[in-house]
Design a protein around this nucleic acid. Structure first.
Lengths: 227, 227
DNA sequence: GTGTAAAGTGAGTAATCACTCATTATTTGA
DNA sequence: TCAAATAATGAGTGATTACTCACTTTACAC
C-alpha cells in the first residue's frame, strides 16, 4: 500500500464529521479509490477492496452502511473542489484584480485545474466514470456548476466584452469554447497521452494563444512572410 | 419496442458474418444497447436485457457466447465508424479538393460527426463509458486513431501551415485544440445541455470562427469601436 | 407429410455478491 | 487494573448473476 497521496489529504480535509479517520478506514478508502478507478464501481467487489486494504470485509460496513455510501464518501467531496476556483471567496479576487485580462484568467484556471487534476487523478476518474449513472449526483453537480461556474464566468465574459477585449458573441458560447479547450488540454496531458513528451509550460501558453487568437494565420502575419 | 433506429441500421450494415439477424437477435441488441447505455455494462443483467427484448434469457446465449461478446458486438463496429471521415478512401478527397481551406475541413468534420453522433448516441455512450475498462478495445482504438486520424490530420495541418493558412506551432497541438473544440461542442449539444436552445447552424459557424480566429477582439475591431 | 436442423425456452446450477451478526480483540476512561 | 465502549473479524446468509442444457417449438428441404 502506497503512502497517502494528495487526494487522500484532500479527503481528510473535507471530512465533514470532524472525526479522525482510523488507519483502517483510510486504507479502505485508498483501496476503494484504486479499485473503483481501475475497474469501475459496479465491477468492484467489497471483498476485493477489503483484501486490498488488508481488513475484514465486515470492517468496511463498520464505517459505511453500504457500498454506495463508500463511493459517495469519495465522490461527493470532490464536486465542490472541482469547481473550487469559482467559489465566491476566491473568485471575487479575480474579477476585481487590476489590469486583469481574460487571458490571465484562463491561464490561472488552466494552471490551477491542471495541478488539481494531476494530484487527484484517480478520484476524478471515478467521478467522471460514475456521474452518468448516479442521477442524484449528476443533478447536484449540474446545479453547482450552473450556480457557481456558468453564471459567474458569464459575468466575467460580459465584462471583458464591454471592455472590448472579447468578441461579441453569446457568452455561453465563449464559455463552452474555453472550457472545451482547457478540458481537452488537461485530458490529453494526463489521461489520453500521458506518455507524450509535452513541454507543459509551452503547451499552456500555446493553448491560451489558440483560445485567444485562434489557429488561422492573420493577414498581417501572412504579409510579413511574403516580404 | 421501438422501430429500428439509425444505429441499428449501422450495426446491420457492419455485420461481418453476412448472415441475416433474426428478429429476436435484433431485439436483444436493441435491449442491450438501451440497458448498457443507461446503467452501464457491469450493472446490466442478462435477465433484464432478455425481459426487455421479450425473449428467454437462454436465447441471448444462443447468439452470443458471453455477455461480454454481446457488448463487443455492439462496441467494436463503432470504432471504425467513429473515425469514419478519416478513412483513406474518403479522406483523400478532402486533401485533394481544390480551394479547400482548413476552415472548410473543420466545418465538414463538425457537421459529419454531429450528424453521426446524433444518430448513434446510445452506442457512443456505451463506448465512452466502457473504453476505460476494456484494455483490448482501448489499445485497438488508440492504434486506429493513431494510424488513421492523427498521422493523417497532421499531414493536412502541415500542408495548411506551408500554405501560410495556419500558425506555426506543433501540428499535434493544433489537432488537439481542434478536436477539443469540436468534441466539446458536440458533447454540449447532445449530452450536457441537450435542453438548451442552441441555434445549431450559428453555433457551428461560431465554433469554427473561434477555432480559426480565437475569442480575443482584434486591434482592428477595437479601433473601429473607438471611432 | 416427414425428418432434420435450427431457434428458442426456462428451470436449474455454481459462483459471486453486499451485507449481517455473534464473537473476539482493542481502546478508552476512571 | 478493570469495565465498558469501540473496533474488527470472518463465517454465514439470502439475493443475484452469467450461463447451461434437456426439452420444445419452429423452419426448412425433400
Amino acid at each position: 500500500m502506497q503512502p497517502p497521496e494528495q487526494w487522500v489529504e484532500e479527503l481528510l480535509k473535507l471530512n465533514d464529521q470532524d472525526e479522525k479517520m482510523t488507519d483502517k478506514q483510510l486504507r479502505i478508502i485508498q483501496a476503494a479509490v484504486e479499485t473503483f478507478s481501475v475497474k469501475g464501481y459496479a465491477a468492484s467487489s467489497t471483498s476485493e477492496i477489503a483484501q486490498k486494504a488488508g481488513v475484514a470485509e465486515g470492517t468496511i460496513f463498520r464505517h459505511y452502511k453500504t457500498k454506495k455510501d463508500l463511493l459517495l464518501s469519495i465522490i461527493a467531496p470532490i464536486m465542490s473542489k472541482l469547481i473550487g476556483p469559482f467559489i465566491l471567496r476566491d473568485f471575487t479576487k479575480v474579477i476585481d484584480a487590476p489590469y486583469s485580462t481574460y487571458e490571465d484568467f484562463v491561464r490561472a484556471i488552466i494552471r490551477n485545474r491542471l495541478e488539481y487534476a494531476r494530484n487527484n487523478l484517480p478520484v476524478i476518474k471515478i467521478f467522471m466514470q460514475e456521474i452518468p449513472f448516479q442521477d442524484d449526483l449528476k443533478k447536484h453537480f449540474k446545479e453547482l456548476v450552473s450556480k457557481h461556474v456558468i453564471s459567474r464566468v458569464i459575468k466575467v465574459i460580459e465584462q471583458y466584452q464591454q471592455k472590448g477585449a472579447l468578441i461579441n458573441v453569446p457568452p455561453l458560447s465563449i464559455l463552452r469554447f474555453t472550457i472545451s479547450a482547457v478540458f481537452g488540454f488537461v485530458m490529453t496531458l494526463l489521461i489520453l497521452m500521458p506518455e507524450a513528451d509535452w513541454n507543459e509550460d509551452e503547451e499552456i501558453e500555446l493553448t491560451i494563444q489558440m483560445i485567444m487568437h485562434g489557429i488561422a494565420r492573420s493577414a498581417d502575419d501572412q504579409a510579413l512572410q511574403n516580404e
